[in-house]
Design a protein around this nucleic acid. Structure first.
Lengths: 329, 329
DNA sequence: TTGTAGGCGTTATCAT
DNA sequence: ATGATAACGCCTACAA
């Protein structure tokens, strides 16, 4: 609460001088005055007002991360990546939970703009056919016009740099792994409808199947455990189980795996199961998955904001074969 | 970017008047001028500057939630609870990841203070013997002196209201469930050392065991999957398996469960496994657990900040018996 | 090298 | 009912 005025008074200098030494200005200041100011600031426990500073400089050291679901480990890992480099640069990162609702994203963007955020990171994928698409683009424009940097870490119809992973290739690699193990009847548990990521992963799967001349089986799903479990029930109820199943993400794969085993189905003996993302739970249950550089994604995102690093990059992924996939008996 | 000055000019009124109608002041304003101002604001797309406002009012509509680990579903659920009621009141909630490091907590508290946060919620437990305890208390004092409300959702050595769950009772209930099933040799996988929550849950377990005249077995652990898996390995390597194991939380229980089954141990046939928290993954793997009102905890926390609701409350929990615990064959 | 002064966008006090 | 105007705390030309 000690302000620059307090410091200047105590140090016997003008506010301007105090300001100059206290904010690393390049403006020359004699060593003696500098020391006096520093001493005064120290004694009074001076803390610059970020509010006042943001008001005049029109930018703050805040980075917003818009995530689709804060409980999803996928986003949590990305958020940590952002926070790590942001913190190192003295920036604060705030994780905003959009609950996969565009209107909620919009609300967060407004707030971020209000606070003159240094930048905002879109961690999740956008919707293919979006009613609020226009509004979203406007919000992003406004943000950028206000000096905030914007970066997307997944496919979005936004005019901003991006750091991505190749979801089609990731799904294709997983499918090919299953095919190489000798499986032909492979089911794909789809993600939420309308999401780019869902569509891309499905495309990758179908491409691999088509190339192998195998018949793809599609099962509706989602992004959460329950969806995987429900898909498993459906598969088991249908009587004829597939040789293998690839899920749109790890959570769904684990839901599938668990329900299958609970239903007495031997995994990987009878059916192989694989996921995508390679989040922490995947490693726990020894799930075959495609490892995505989630943390790096976040780090890179923060860097394009903080250091103006070039965007439009695609980071590499790699398949990690574990205990839930095996060759045909 | 349209400021009050712009509006007042366009509406042909003073800045003061424009301000009065635009911020729901109780100061009387004639209907005609009000309409003119409203119209001008609308045409110019006026948005009040939260920064300027916070600067003069010395308070902002930000609520900070300090979590120990953003990947932990326990915290995610609490954060959602806070965000839900905060959003309804037009407040923004920012989730701050402290990585279970007091120094990190301190840093976040500083920022929150800088922004004159309306309040801060400590979602996680404090440390029993903390080097930074003094600093933390100071930070909280400063926060409160600055007008921010503070509330703790777990045991902390802080001078602030709290909304809690009874961790001792929760662990005791779980242990009693195991005892009632006829188990005698029960192991407890402990949480991270030095954390209040860890200590309380251990106490509850030991109290139940003592009351039943059973010999408690303690196994070091942590809060994550890996700790549970490691504990399982240790147990299996030791040769003689316990009848049942209670883990300090669900993640550890699931790590235990998975490792046990992978090691060929029948759960719950040979050994029963239970956790505490009842987070989403627990329901997935059909884990017996103690259900804590995590979301409500967050909601209540937000309410004591927003509505000055009385603190120092203890919310009820309840045991949920599922498929990982069974009576002795 | 140091100081003066205007401005950032609001709110609030005091006149009118 | 309306309007000046002084804060709030800081930065930054422009002067000296």
């Amino acid at each position: 609460m000690a302000s620059l005025a307090d410091i200047s008074r105590r140090a016997g200098v003008s506010i301007a001088t105090a300001s100059r030494v206290l904010n690393g200005s390049s403006h020359p200041v004699s060593d003696v005055t500098r020391d006096r100011v520093l001493a005064a600031a120290d004694e009074l426990g001076y803390r610059p007002s970020v509010l006042a500073r943001a008001l005049v400089k029109r930018t703050s050291r805040i980075i917003g991360v818009i995530v689709g679901d804060i409980v999803d480990p996928y986003f949590a890992e990305i958020a940590r990546g952002v926070a790590d480099v942001a913190a190192r640069a003295g920036h604060l990162t705030m994780v905003c939970n959009a609950d996969r609702r565009p209107t909620s994203e919009l609300a967060h963007l407004d707030v971020l703009r209000d606070y003159h955020a240094a930048g905002v990171v879109f961690a999740g994928s956008g919707y293919e056919d979006l009613h609020d698409a226009e509004a979203l683009r406007h919000a992003v424009d406004a943000l950028q016009a206000g000096g905030s940097a914007v970066v997307a870490l997944a496919a979005r119809d936004l005019d901003c740099p991006s750091v991505l992973v190749d979801n089609r290739a990731a799904a294709r690699d997983a499918a090919e792994h299953l095919l190489e193990l000798g499986h032909r009847r492979i089911a794909f548990v789809e993600g939420p409808a309308g999401l780019h990521t869902s569509a891309h992963r499905l495309e990758g799967f179908e491409a691999a199947m088509a190339a192998a001349g195998a018949e793809p089986i599609r099962v509706p799903g989602g992004f959460e455990y329950e969806a995987g479990a429900a898909a498993a029930e459906r598969l088991m109820a249908a009587g004829e189980l597939p040789d293998a199943v690839l899920a749109v993400n790890d959570e769904v794969a684990i839901g599938m795996l668990t329900a299958l085993r609970r239903g007495g189905v031997d995994v990987p003996g009878r059916v192989s199961v694989a996921g995508i993302d390679d989040t922490r739970p995947a490693r726990l249950v020894d799930l075959t998955s495609v490892s995505l550089p989630l943390h790096e994604l976040g780090e890179s995102g923060a860097r394009v904001i903080l250091e103006g690093e070039a965007g439009d990059v695609v980071l590499p992924h790699r398949l990690v074969a574990r205990g839930t996939t095996a060759g045909r008996g």
